[in-house]
């Protein structure tokens, strides 16, 4: 009996607040994740280059930062950054959406740490003989990297990067603790009006699931196509 009421409530709430879920919440989640992955990838690529590079001091710093980020919970990092960043950069306090900026920065840095590992291992997985052959022909390090190593590394990197995107989509839900308007935040908004938690959570769960399921299937198809061409 209770299940039927649950489904009825889910239907009613969805019909009434569908725009909050699908337009505001979902869009914000996708935008936030997309931004995180794009900037995270760019920043992560820089970190990866430092990691495989030759400057020991930079290498050491980057490794330390990455280990700290990977070794502490995301939620903790979000809390710390919302307090810490405004202290470090006082000008932030005057901005209207300072919370969103702090959270975006944390998400990006967090993602960059993971992406840097993905890219580093992707580059290192390319057979050393490829580099040696290129260098033995008299090509310099940069030409070897851009013409031989990176094109082959991309094949290792892209699938893992897709998985990172899915992880980030789920992780942005943690940002709801700070009411930044993504999908999970809509729960807090709607529950304040209806005082009925479960149906809302179920709807949000379904939206997340469909989004990630479609994405992972698309990635799988993409990966198969890439393998067929290799």
């Amino acid at each position: 009996m209770y299940l039927i009421t649950l489904f009825e409530d889910m239907g009613k709430i969805f019909v009434k607040y569908w725009d909050l879920f699908l337009i505001e919440g979902l869009t914000a989640t996708i935008l936030l994740s997309l931004m995180t992955v794009v900037f995270g990838t760019v920043f992560g690529a820089v970190l990866a280059l430092v990691k495989i590079g030759r400057i020991k001091v930079l290498k050491w710093i980057v490794n330390a930062v990455v280990e700290v980020i990977r070794g502490t919970p995301m939620l903790l990092q979000l809390y710390i950054s919302t307090f810490l960043i405004p202290v470090i950069i006082p000008a932030m306090n005057e901005l209207e959406n300072k919370k969103l900026i702090c959270i975006s920065l944390t998400l990006i840095l967090n993602s960059a740490a993971y992406v840097s590992e993905i890219i580093r291992s992707g580059i290192e997985a390319v057979d050393k003989g490829q580099t040696e052959a290129a260098r033995s022909l008299g090509l310099n390090g940069t030409t070897t990297m851009t013409n031989i190593v990176l094109p082959q590394a991309v094949k290792n990197i892209l699938p893992a990067l897709g998985n990172e995107f899915i992880t980030v989509i789920k992780e942005t839900s943690l940002a709801s603790t700070f009411y930044v308007g993504e999908l999970m935040t809509t729960y807090h908004i709607i529950v304040g009006k209806t005082h009925n938690s479960l149906p809302i959570l179920m709807i949000i769960g379904i939206v997340y699931f469909i989004l990630n399921f479609v994405l992972s299937k698309a990635l799988g198809a993409f990966e198969r196509r890439m393998k067929a061409h290799a």
Partner: peptide, 19 residues
């Protein structure tokens, strides 16, 4: 790099560029 341009090398594992 200039020297290597005048020194060809052939490897046990061929090392042709896969891409």
């Amino acid at each position: 790099n200039l020297a290597r341009q005048k020194m060809g090398m052939v490897f046990q594992q061929f090392n042709l560029f896969n891409n």
